[in-house]
């Protein structure tokens, strides 16, 4: 539980940092336009911040959302038993001895 809370904090931090990187990039371009310099590429610190915060966001989302599903198709099937697999709800018949357990059961009086 504690580590999940920590993951959530990191996730929020990661998103904030990602937004901050985007904001810095926009700022950098305005700065270039104002000083009339040529656009070549983003400075290294902004690229690094983007990549690192993206990693943090991806990792923490995976931690928070839940466990992975098995990739092997047979694992899901292993837990099944014939009791449930061999039971067909659309072919139920009701004329069995279970009826005798009903509180209103009267032997040999089927037409009511």
């Amino acid at each position: 539980m504690g580590s999940k809370f920590f993951n959530k904090l990191l996730l929020i931090g990661g998103f904030a940092s990602l937004a901050h990187a985007a904001f810095s990039a926009a700022h950098h371009r305005t700065y270039l336009r104002l000083t009339e310099q040529e656009w070549s590429s983003l400075p290294l610190d902004i690229i690094l911040q983007t990549v690192i915060s993206l990693m943090i966001v991806v990792y923490n989302i995976i931690q928070i959302v839940g466990d992975f599903k098995e990739i092997r198709a047979t694992v899901d099937m292993q837990a099944k038993t014939w009791d449930t697999l061999g039971n067909f709800p659309s072919f139920y018949t009701f004329n069995h001895r279970g009826r005798a357990l009903s509180p209103s059961y009267k032997p040999h009086d089927y037409d009511d």
């Binding site: 198709a73 047979t74 099937m77 099944k80 014939w82 697999l85 061999g86």
Partner: peptide
């Protein structure tokens, strides 16, 4: 329909 079901193979 379910080639991965061990129960069907067993049956």
């Amino acid at each position: 329909h379910n080639p991965h079901s061990h129960l069907i193979h067993q049956r």
